[in-house]
């Protein structure tokens, strides 16, 4: 049970990171982006490639920081992956979503996002294969925190949780202490007035895609560090990040963070009751509960 909660918090951190960008994009561009979770996969695969390249260029970077399986090359690769994924998000918007936004309604955007997701996911499959990948073949030994009940924690898991929380804290500081953060919050609240206040909307849209892409890449890498990587990563996280967004209320960054942890823990706890095959449906049950009890989420203001 405690082990489930621990695992859930960890998955929750990954979901939260993914949901932060989704909630901003969904609020600002007013469409449910079903291609969004593919950014996690793009980020994780990009890190995989950069890690290999960096390790080949400078073998000294490849040794792991014990007891983590994380190496300097992977850490650098993650930063590069965050940049590349942010850029990919901007590029997808520029190539596809922006052009559809200009001439069609929001539902066409939702529609297009499904198409984009299908293309991205299967392009990744073609490039990297169906099989699961790992960043490191080293075996990460778990530390036994307690034998009764048995509670195991890996060093990588602790690192992932700390790193995810650090990213969220950094974003909190940006939102509350910097003029750029005020501009992001202003656009979220009232885009027209934000323009009057001198904020350029197109710049903000690019910023949100960059931030969302970078956070998603981090989420993808963090998940892969403690699990494994397959082309289904994006698909598997799609419903959880949507659930986190809806639980928190569309447009609320803090709601998305809380929602992510909630969905992670609830899914992990459900493992104690349900066979594991049903876990993919758990976020859906959470969405249902929110729609029944509090349709605009915990912090949301978006109306129909």
């Amino acid at each position: 049970m405690i082990q489930n909660v621990l695992d859930g918090v960890l998955t929750g951190a990954v979901i939260s990171l993914g949901a932060i960008g989704l909630t901003m994009v969904m609020h600002m561009l007013r469409f449910a982006n079903f291609a969004y979770a593919e950014l996690l996969a793009i980020g994780a695969y990009a890190a995989l490639v950069f890690d290999k390249v960096l390790a080949a260029l400078a073998p000294v970077l490849a040794s792991a920081f014990k007891p983590l399986t994380l190496s300097a090359s992977l850490a650098l690769a993650t930063l590069l992956a965050m940049a590349i994924t942010g850029a990919s998000a901007v590029l997808l918007d520029w190539l596809i979503f922006r052009r559809i936004r200009a001439k069609a309604d929001a539902l066409s955007m939702v529609f297009a996002s499904f198409g984009v997701a299908l293309i991205v996911r299967n392009a990744i499959t073609l490039a990297f294969g169906h099989d699961a990948k790992l960043f490191s073949k080293d075996i990460a030994f778990a530390t036994v925190l307690s034998t009764d009940p048995l509670i195991l924690v890996k060093a990588d898991q602790v690192f992932v949780l700390i790193a995810a929380l650090a990213l969220m804290a950094a974003f909190h500081i940006v939102l509350t202490r910097t003029a750029f953060g005020f501009a992001l919050r202003a656009v979220a609240e009232n885009p027209n007035l934000a323009q009057v206040a001198g904020v350029r909307l197109s710049t903000m849209i690019v910023s949100v895609w960059l931030i969302g892409g970078a956070f998603s890449a981090a989420a993808g890498v963090f998940y892969t560090l403690t699990n494994h990587l397959s082309p289904a990563l994006g698909h598997n996280f799609l419903l959880p990040v949507f659930a986190a967004t809806i639980v928190g209320g569309i447009g609320s960054v803090y709601g998305a963070v809380l929602g992510g942890f909630l969905v992670g823990v609830a899914s992990a706890l459900s493992l104690a009751v349900l066979p594991s095959g049903y876990v993919p449906a758990m976020p859906f049950l959470i969405i249902l509960a929110v729609l029944l009890l509090r349709p605009h989420g915990l912090f949301g203001e978006d109306q129909a």
């Binding site: 003029a179 005020f182 501009a183 919050r185 202003a186 609240e189 009232n190 027209n192 007035l193 934000a194 009057v196 206040a197 001198g198 904020v199």
Partner: peptide, 25 residues
């Protein structure tokens, strides 16, 4: 500068943050 009739401030930002936003540049 333009002052809209309604919804002319950011309700979720503090007074100081509202001003800091327009003073960005």
């Amino acid at each position: 500068s333009y002052v809209p009739q309604t919804d002319n401030i950011f309700r979720h930002l503090s007074v100081r943050e509202n001003l800091a936003l327009v003073l960005r540049r």
